[in-house]
Each structure stands twice: as structure tokens, then as C-alpha cells.
Amino acid sequence: MVGSECYSNPPILNASSGVGYVTNIAGVNTYVTGSPLAILAIVLVSDVYGFKPPLLRKIADKVANHGYFVAVPDFFNGEPYNSENVSRPFDAWFKDHDPAKGIETAKPIIEALKRKGASAVGFAGFCWGARTVTDLGKAKLIQASVLLHPSFITVDDVRGVEVPIAILGAEHDSIAPPKLINQFKQVLDAKPEIDSYVKIFANVSHGWTVRYDPNDPKAVEAAGEAHTIMINWFDKHLKK
């Protein structure tokens, strides 16, 4: 079975949440927020719960407030993981939604954003989304990348990234444990020509940046710190 931390603590799904709206980009339903006139675009690639959770859309709105046009595509084509669907367990769902295929959905979205006028595009991936973002960074199809509690990537994947990359890991995470995050740091430190940043957050678990309890001040603070690092990373590498 794939690591259960990917789908523990399921979020509330609410298609009407957020200050933005859902539109179609390159054939993909996408939550968008921020000024359509912004020339810098950020794409958030969700965890297995897709683009509807209010907390994810809140993060998108927060990023948009820093001058970005932000897109959160539905990489699962209307089929996010549903923990209540006992007839379709996670492993069966996962076979139909291989993170290695995410790049094929992402490429036309990037092209569409550039046709709209985006001069630079950054991607952030949460859990499942980290593979898509890493593959895009290896192919140099984006200008900056952030991985938050990444899943389904290897040291060799990270070694191949050719764009600025920040990786935010959790102290309590069996999918990307601190030992693996530190291995990511070692291979990135060996590539000084690629700007990188790696941080392991203490006292948090996998998914802490997007599946946190908004009524828990410590959880909100830890998630907020990660979001700030992400935004600052994009500011550094896209606002040149």
C-alpha cells in the first residue's frame, strides 16, 4: 500500500470556496485567483484531494495577494481521492492517477499561461504534486519550484532539477522522512549553480501545510511559515 500519510486527515471539499473562480485552462478545470493582468503566474499542484479544499484555495489567494496570477488545476479530472468510497481504495485510485503523468497535464497549462501573457511561471507541489513539479524542473519548463512535504520522488529526481528549488519537509513523515530530505539537500548542495533551499519543520507531520486545523494556532503558524517561505522563494526568482 502506498504511504497512508498521503490520504490521512482528509479535508473538507467545497467547490465554492475561495475569492477566485473556476475556469478552463487547456481543457482542465482550474481554480484561478489574482489579477488576470499579472505577468507572473504560479501554479499549485495539489495533494490527492484535488483543487477543491478551502485551505488550498486560501493558500492560492494568499499567493495572489503578492502580485501573481495563481492557478490550481484539477489534475484528477473530477476524480480526487475520496476516503469515503470504500469500493475504491487508495491503491486502486492511485493506479489511475500516477503522479508521473502529471507533467503531461501541466505542459499545456504552462503554454496557455504564456499565451495569456505570463513572462515567468513558478510551480509548487504538495505531496502528490511534488512529482509533477520536479519533472517540470528537470525539463526546465518552469522558472522556479517549491516542494512541500513531497511524495513519490527520489534523490535522482532532485539531482536532475535544473531550476531554483525549495523543499520543505516535516519532522514526522514516513514518506519523505528527514533522512531523505537531508539527502535531497546534499545533492542540491553539490549543484551550487542551481539555487536551492531545504528546511525540515519541527513538530509537524506530512501534509501540515495544506491539511492543518485552522482552529489550532500552532498548526496555523507552522503552515503560515511554510507559505511565507514559498512566496518569498517565488518573489526571489520570478520578480527579477
Rank of each mutant, 00 (worst) to 15 (best):
K199Q: 14
G125E: 00
I12A: 14
I103C: 09
Y81H: 13
L147I: 04
T134K: 05
G50P: 06
V220E: 00
E111D: 15
D216P: 04
N232K: 14
K58G: 14
Y81T: 08
A15T: 00
G224W: 03
F184N: 00
K107L: 15
Q183R: 15
K191D: 00
V32M: 02
L13I: 13
N77T: 03
W208F: 15
G27N: 08
K116T: 00
G34I: 06
K239S: 13
K116D: 02
F94C: 06
A219E: 12
Y7K: 08
D235L: 13
I110D: 04
D235V: 03
N232Q: 15
G117N: 07
V161G: 09
P73A: 11
K239N: 15
K58W: 02
F76G: 03
I175S: 12
K239F: 02
D235H: 14
N203S: 13
K101M: 11
S46M: 10
V72L: 14
G27K: 10
P73R: 10
A202D: 13
A100D: 08
K240D: 00
A190C: 07
I59L: 15
V198P: 00
V161N: 07
P36R: 15
T132C: 14
K240I: 00
G160C: 06
Y197H: 15
G3E: 08
A226P: 04
K240W: 00
T105Q: 12
S83W: 03
L113Y: 06
K107C: 03
N9Y: 03
D173N: 10
F76I: 02
C127E: 00
V63L: 07
H206F: 08
N24K: 14
V198I: 14
Y68T: 06
E193R: 13
E111H: 14
V158F: 04
N77Q: 13
A226H: 06
A118H: 06
G50I: 06
Y81C: 11
G117P: 06
I142K: 05
S87L: 13
V133S: 03
V45S: 05
T33K: 05
K62Y: 07
S151V: 10
E221F: 13
E79C: 06
A41S: 15
V210R: 03
E221N: 13
L37F: 07
V19H: 11
P36G: 09
L180Y: 01
N77W: 08
P164I: 03
I25H: 03
A38C: 09
S196R: 07
P80V: 05
H66W: 04
F123I: 05
V220M: 09
N29Y: 01
Y21N: 11
G18P: 03
